[in-house]
Amino acid sequence: MTMTFIRACIIAIAALACVTPSHAETVETAPGVTVTKKTFPAPINEQPFFGFADKTPEQSKADSKFLAEADKLGSREKVFDVAIERGFAHIDRGDFPEAAQRFNQAWLLAPERSAVYQGFAVISAARFGDLEYAEELFRIALHQPKPRRTLKADYGRLLLKAKRPVEAKAILEQGVRDAPEFADGWASLGLARLQTGDAKGACAAASEADKLKRSHDVMVDLALLKRQAACQ
């Protein structure tokens, strides 16, 4: 075997690697919707999409029973709405394991709905620190039916965490129009404006947030924002 032949083989293998890149495995989570298959160190019912786990017969039976009970109540959509609202209420309290369980119930009920992907995006970022996966889910949520009014505010906050304030500001400006009563959106917009050189606009956003019901985290953000922007 000559050196010329060996060299030709190496070049061919390298070329093949360039044209056949590896791809992360994806899974269909609703008709026409695919997401990257990701698992996290937590029980399956506390992970997005049940951690894509193969369920035992007992777990599948429990899912079927849950859906049948929802049907008895007359509307899966109503049960979905309750599950989603409970999930976000648990997020507000910092109870991410319980929130994920409610979002997984919602996914069983209506896997195509935007709020499922928004909820799992928040869980992915806040509990597991996976900002890249969270953004993937937020982007899906933007194109799914019946989005929550707080979707863009939550997405903009993620972009702030990812140190992308220009993109965050554009999303958050839309977010406060969608949900003007959501203090988190105004606080995040204030931070985005401050980080893009608009201290006056940051103080204006802080003033709007002050008029609304605020969580502990929002009040911490606002205190930091006012100090850094030198708000009067």
Rank of each mutant, 00 (worst) to 15 (best):
R93D: 13
I84M: 07
F40R: 05
M3S: 12
A62T: 07
A12R: 09
K213R: 14
A202E: 01
K163R: 15
A12S: 13
F52I: 05
P180T: 08
K38C: 03
A126R: 14
G129A: 09
F96Y: 15
I6W: 14
V218L: 05
E85N: 15
A62P: 00
F80W: 11
R102P: 00
A199R: 14
A153F: 01
A223T: 12
K152V: 03
R157W: 08
F128T: 01
L212P: 00
G32I: 02
T196K: 07
G51H: 05
L137C: 04
K146L: 10
A187W: 02
D95N: 15
Y133T: 08
R149Y: 09
L137G: 02
T56M: 10
A187E: 04
Q228L: 14
K65A: 14
I140A: 00
A53H: 11
F49W: 07
G119A: 06
E132C: 00
I91Q: 07
A223Y: 05
G94L: 11
A170V: 12
L67P: 01
C18L: 15
A62I: 08
A62G: 00
P145F: 07
I171D: 00
E135W: 03
V220C: 01
H216R: 15
E28R: 13
V116S: 00
G190L: 06
S188R: 02
A42C: 09
S22T: 13
A126Y: 09
A106F: 03
L142V: 11
S75D: 10
P145N: 10
V33D: 06
K61L: 13
K213M: 10
M219C: 06
N104I: 04
R76F: 03
F40C: 04
T196Y: 09
S215H: 06
P43D: 12
A89M: 11
P31E: 14
I13K: 08
K152Q: 13
E136R: 06
T56Y: 07
R102V: 00
L131H: 07
A110M: 11
T196A: 04
C231N: 08
V176Y: 02
Q47I: 02
E98F: 01
L225E: 03
L225W: 04
K38E: 07
A17N: 13
A12I: 11
V27K: 11
L160P: 00
A162E: 14
A30T: 04
F66R: 10
A179S: 15
D63F: 11
D81M: 09
Q174V: 02
Y155K: 05
Q232P: 13
L142K: 11
D210Q: 14
F138K: 01
A209I: 02
V116D: 01
A134Q: 04
H143F: 10
D217Y: 06
F80Q: 04
I91W: 06
A206E: 03
Q105A: 04
C203V: 08
M219S: 13
R127W: 10
A141G: 04
L224A: 10
A126E: 14
M3V: 13
Q118M: 12
A8S: 13
F182S: 03
R93Q: 15
V218Q: 03
G32T: 04
R113T: 03
A204L: 12
E173K: 08
I123D: 02
T34A: 12
A223D: 11
I13M: 14
A8G: 10
M3G: 11
R86G: 06
A30D: 07
A89K: 14
D71M: 11
T2L: 12
